[in-house]
């Protein structure tokens, strides 16, 4: 049976673009795929360097309860976020990490872990700041929750015109890395190479 409601948490340091990554995902679902999306966020009093976490719920029905307790998908960009949130994942859920910033060993049974060197890929584009969009592209390829095209439109819609090209490149970097990883895992018998979740559109 296809999933009707998917709960996602994205977490990292303040300044890494956690909220923007969540907004892109929510926007892709709510504006470009006709579904429902609710994003909430929590942050410390600091503007930079503190912890930052956003929650997005995607659904084919109106969303009533706005918070996420046990996400289906967790995206972490800092060790602190991983340590804090990985144990809360739903058993069998998906854990997506910034592979070079995060080491995880404590998560519920059946969780599948996928890593991407997002900071390094962003640096290859000359701007570390787009690591959040690299993560978003990777998220798109791994989860298959949303059409790549909807996510691209949401990226373009969420950044200033002068930054669109760079951000779309960052998205492609992450998406390509994720697609290749899924293919490899399929070839190694670790999976069938298909994206691991599917959201029924409304």
């Amino acid at each position: 049976m296809r999933q009707l409601l998917t709960e996602i948490r994205i977490a990292g340091f303040g300044g890494q673009g956690v909220i923007l990554a969540a907004a892109v995902i929510g926007k892709a679902a709510a504006l470009f795929e006709g579904g429902y999306a609710t994003m909430t966020q929590s942050f410390g009093p600091e503007a930079r360097g503190g912890s930052s976490s956003a929650q997005v719920i995607l659904s084919s029905e109106p969303i009533l309860y706005p918070y996420v307790a046990h996400p289906d998908v967790l995206v972490v960009m800092s060790q602190e976020a991983a340590t804090r949130f990985a144990p809360e994942l739903k058993p069998g859920g998906i854990l997506i990490t910034e592979r070079e910033l995060v080491r995880v060993d404590n998560y519920p049974p059946g969780v599948r872990v996928y890593g991407v060197p997002a900071t390094r890929l962003a640096e290859e584009l000359g701007r570390k700041v787009v690591l959040n969009i690299v993560m978003t592209g990777f998220f798109g390829a791994i989860t298959g929750l949303l059409e790549a095209e909807s996510l691209r439109r949401a990226v373009a819609d969420s950044v200033p015109p002068a930054m669109q090209k760079l951000n779309l490149q960052a998205f492609e970097k992450g998406y390509e890395y994720g697609s290749n990883l899924m293919l490899q895992m399929g070839a190694n018998g670790n999976g069938n190479g298909d994206p691991v979740l599917a959201l029924e559109s409304a």
Partner: peptide
């Protein structure tokens, strides 16, 4: 705060 900081269509 919840409604104020909640993002939706």
């Amino acid at each position: 705060e919840c409604v104020g900081h909640m993002t939706e269509k």
